[in-house]
């Protein structure tokens, strides 16, 4: 079981990086979706006012 620390470090780093990146994408997508919905409502308002 020599060098187990190196093996642990390598696998931990890979998983932290992958999960970190997935989390980053997920959070950013959610924020952008909220922004898009707000902007869509804002751009629809003047049009419905004209009707």
């Amino acid at each position: 079981m020599e060098n187990l620390g190196y093996l642990f470090a390598a696998y931990t780093l890979i998983w932290v990086a992958i999960f970190g990146y997935i989390l980053f994408i997920h959070i950013k997508q959610r924020k952008l979706q909220q922004q898009i919905e707000l902007l869509q409502k804002a751009t629809e308002k003047p049009e419905s006012a004209n009707d």
């Binding site: 020599e2 060098n3 190196y6 093996l7 390598a10 696998y11």
Partner: peptide, 9 residues
């Protein structure tokens, strides 16, 4: 030894 398993990732 065991550290070679880093190779698979």
């Amino acid at each position: 030894g065991i550290v070679q398993r880093i190779f698979y990732f």
